[in-house]
Design a protein around this nucleic acid. Structure first.
Lengths: 157, 157
DNA sequence: GTAGCTGCAAAAACTTTGCACACAC
DNA sequence: GTGTGTGCAAAGTTTTTGCAGCTAC
């Protein structure tokens, strides 16, 4: 047990089994175990991960770091992932579940991230006068706070 | 010529001449030419500068890069400067003229940055319900647009 | 005079690149 | 079979660290 038996004939590329494979297919990218692995790791992650962290979460044999870098770049191009530069030099990556305009809230305690769909900032900006004469074309909002779990949990110290 | 003669007696530390020196003094940092230079470069910059760019704008003899890094770190601690991670790996630094909560608008064309003092986002966040149960503690808003100059100037292409 | 600061050089950390081989299609 | 993708290793960049000497105070 554990290994489900696979109906033969249904196996060739498993392209239509996992959504990841489907997505890769749809943009003309080859469906490789490495890509599926990286996408899967990002899917399960609840906070932005560095390349190193992504590598650690991948099962052996692990793809080379360069493979991870190269694929993340493509995923970002496709709008599947986002890079989140932090205060350190390390770039962290996050999967975007919504293709539309959205923002992220990150918990200051545990680092988990959720997407916030509704963006009510645009109208605000339209009204704002004192923007130094700038015409706003886009914005980026990062929210920080405490997630429900960490809010309940008493802070250490 | 070239070298202005300096009234003797007025020279000791010039601590009370430049605001930079004053500021350094006020937090117990020694007033060195390197620090004054870096602060001055940041003061004149209209867009975030990388360490390399700061170095290039300093007059000979230039401080070592490590000196620039070390001082930027302190300036950020003091709230005089801010680091702005971009899409590349390079950290860029910007002088904050307001100590209070503020945001930046960056021109997508020329890269210049201005501060926006009034932040009308807080009340908005307080009303917002669908934040996944998060309690917002702080936020970071980056605005991008076209500055008045670039708005007038016809785009190339 | 002393603590703090700087310069230099070496090391560290992160990311990119080149090329031969492998694999998805 | 072909072209894309991968692994490995080397190089490139940016940033940090250690230490001896210097300088602001």
């Amino acid at each position: 047990m554990g290994i489900p038996h696979r109906p033969r004939g249904a196996i060739k590329t498993q392209s239509d089994k996992h959504p990841a494979a489907k997505a890769l297919h749809s943009v003309g990218m080859k469906v490789t175990p490495q890509r599926q692995g990286i996408l899967s790791v990002l899917d399960f992650a609840r906070r932005p991960l560095s390349v190193e962290e992504i590598s650690q979460r991948l099962s052996e044999p692990r793809p080379g770091l360069s493979t991870i870098y190269r694929n993340l770049e493509r995923f970002i191009q496709e709008g599947w992932a986002e890079s989140m530069p932090g205060s350190d030099q390390i770039m962290r990556f996050l999967k975007c579940h919504s293709g539309a305009h959205h923002h992220h809230i990150q918990c200051e305690e545990c680092g988990c991230v959720v997407e916030v769909g509704a963006c009510e900032i645009e109208p605000l900006l339209r009204e704002a006068k004192d923007l130094g004469g700038f015409t706003i074309t886009r914005h980026r909002l990062q929210l920080f706070g405490l997630c429900p779990t960490c809010l309940v949990k008493p802070q250490i110290g």
